[in-house]
Amino acid sequence: MQPAPPAYKCSNCGRTTTYARLRCLNCRGETFEAAALPDTATLLTLTEIHQLPVGFDERFLRVGIVEFAGGARAMGWVTFEGAETGTQVEVRWEPIRDSDGEPVYGFAFYPEA
């Protein structure tokens, strides 16, 4: 079973980010609680990268930004062809690459079942 995607909800104002912060972007609050993200989200934008940085052997990568119900957003890999802005995707948190032999987890977006 894959671990749940990370989500950090500000205890003061409720703003949720998908990466850890020490201070809330919205209210500067410094206390966060774990939050659950929906399994699906809406693709806001995407791009297909054909000139990649060092460390990637792929011919190209598809990267997108999604928005979850409630407003939290995340960047991740778009794993399928034909996606466009507004496409509903299934969101998974899974190993996306290796670093020194250790898996690096990240968001990956799949066609909605």
Binding site: T45, I49, L61, A74
Partner: peptide, 21 residues
């Protein structure tokens, strides 16, 4: 580093995401 860089993004790709919108 954790919200963007790990996905292999480049500055042209940040501009690509922006340009599409």
């Amino acid at each position: 580093p954790f919200a963007e860089y790990i996905y292999g993004v480049t500055l042209p790709s940040m501009a690509g995401l922006f340009a599409r919108l």
